[in-house]
Design a protein around this nucleic acid. Sequence first.
DNA 1: TCATTAATAT
DNA 2: AATATTAATG
Length: 299
Amino acid sequence: MREEEEPSWFARGEEQEQQLPRPDELMPLTQTLITPDLAVAFDITTHGAGGAGPVPDINGGGASSAAGSSGGGGGGGGDEPARTLKRPRLVWTPQLHKRFVDAVAQLGIKNAVPKTIMQLMSVDGLTRENVASHLQKYRLYLKRMQGLGGGGGGGSHSSGSGSATDAATEHLFATGPVPFLPPAHRAPAADTYPPFSPMGSGAAHHHHRAPQIGHFHHPAARPLAHYAAAAGPGFDHGFLSRVAPPGMHHHRMASAAAGMGMGMIAPSSFADEMDRGAGGSGGGGGRRELTLFPTSGDH
DNA sequence: TCATTAATAT
DNA sequence: AATATTAATG
């Protein structure tokens, strides 16, 4: 039995360029309203064949194939204490991630701690652990970016200057504007959004790979103001490539360094997008995926 | 108590 | 691979 759950929904096509979409129009996290716990507990997808479709998909036009499929009746035993149920794994959809990134950006590196971020996001169901976990990854991603002067994948432009870190990133690390938001105190009203999508065990089951945020795109390959900077494959992300940013005092981390996958998007205003340059670009051809430190020790 | 990080588990 | 969980530490 392949238990590969992958909620496929992913809504695309909308891009809010707001600093922080306050509890107003949020992504159609169409939750069926049934408590996620409940839904998961029963593994019901509420769709039943009857017609009342609980609308397992929340895209706005996307295509999602969520078909029930439950396990089959009986499949499983069925009786599970409806209590003490664990919530389904949080699916960091681009939208959610965007909220996360925006929150971090607004808070400033100083206050960007799990609790605060969580509060600012105001997403119902989000727990501190959720954010903390994501934050971990997010930071790793940023770390990787520091130090790549463009290199990375290919680009390699310039020299010296340019850091791959975008202004946004730098902005983050450099200062902490933090408007305010003292610890404690949640959003007064209008907070908490609909819960995330429960991928209950019955709702979604193996499907094709839905474009979740599997990868990040950092703002370098966008039709923004400056593009082309790189002669050649100045493509997006060029992370990974040996970490040895200048000015990095090491603490005491050993870091195995290998075996990590990453996937985050840069802190900016774009969170989703799926363009791909394809390319080959490259003239060069081909960008390797993961070029763990070159055995050529430079040092 | 919370945050951060590494390691590990699902 | 993406998240969650845990352990150890500050």
